[in-house]
Amino acid sequence: MITTAEIAARITGDRLPLLTLGEFFDGNVAEDSLAPNRWGFGRPTLAEIAERLRAVEARDDVAWIRVGLHEDTELDEAIGDVIAESILLATTLPAAVLEEILDIAWLHSDGIVESDESSMEDYTDIPPVIGHHRVVFLVWD
């Protein structure tokens, strides 16, 4: 798992880097680092979520998946808490189809939210969005 010191080194201005699935999930045992209000109330483990997201990322109609960080990530500490805000996906799939594939009920997610240009302004390290792909957010309230 990436450290907050490594994240801090990748910040551009006040824009947080998008993390790969490996950077966020591999070795992450802090179950409350994603959807903490759903952990302990049916949300699957981080390992199960990572497995599902990796399977979806392998699809031809998904270009990439990244983890968007929450502003409460503890960047003032070299080994602080890394906290996710949402999962970003570059895809050609309709939101309803993607919600079914991800199984948002199982994830205890609030579903897919379409992005606009302003929703990407808080991030750096954004992979290219090519062809007919668009970026959507998998969110938990």
Rank of each mutant, 00 (worst) to 15 (best):
E121W: 13
E71I: 12
S33V: 06
A63Q: 15
L98N: 03
D110H: 11
D60Q: 12
L102K: 02
I2F: 09
T124R: 03
A90L: 06
G111R: 09
T20I: 09
A105G: 15
A35N: 05
W64V: 04
A35L: 02
E77T: 14
F137L: 14
L34Q: 03
A63H: 10
T91M: 00
N28L: 06
A47D: 11
V62A: 09
H132F: 10
R54G: 06
G22F: 07
T124M: 02
H70C: 11
V135I: 14
E31N: 08
P36F: 12
D116R: 14
A47M: 04
S119M: 13
M120Y: 05
L89P: 00
E99I: 09
A9S: 09
D14I: 14
D116N: 15
A58H: 10
W140S: 01
T45L: 10
V56H: 05
G27Y: 06
L93K: 05
W106V: 02
T91S: 03
A105W: 13
V62C: 12
A8I: 02
F41P: 05
T4E: 09
G40D: 01
I101R: 04
T73E: 03
L19F: 07
P17E: 04
H133A: 12
L93V: 02
W140P: 03
D110L: 07
F25K: 01
D76H: 14
G68S: 12
L102R: 00
F137T: 13
E114R: 12
G131D: 10
D14N: 13
D81I: 09
D32Q: 12
V113E: 12
T92C: 06
A78V: 10
R134Q: 09
R59G: 08
M1A: 12
E48Y: 13
L18F: 13
A8L: 09
T20V: 08
R10D: 00
R43G: 03
V135K: 00
A105C: 14
A35P: 07
A95V: 04
T91K: 00
M1E: 09
I79C: 13
A35D: 01
L107F: 08
I79L: 13
P44Q: 10
N28W: 05
L138P: 00
I87K: 00
D141P: 05
W64L: 08
W64I: 07
D14Q: 13
D60F: 11
D61S: 11
I104E: 02
A5V: 04
A35Q: 08
S115I: 06
L16E: 02
A55G: 08
A95L: 02
N37E: 15
D116Q: 15
V82E: 03
A50M: 08
D141T: 05
G27D: 03
R38G: 04
H108P: 06
A95R: 05
I2V: 11
P44D: 05
A105I: 14
E71C: 12
L16W: 06
D81Y: 09
R54Q: 07
R15P: 00
S33Q: 02
E77H: 13
G40F: 00
D61R: 03
G40Y: 00
L138K: 01
F137K: 14
S115V: 03
F24N: 08
L46R: 03
L88A: 01
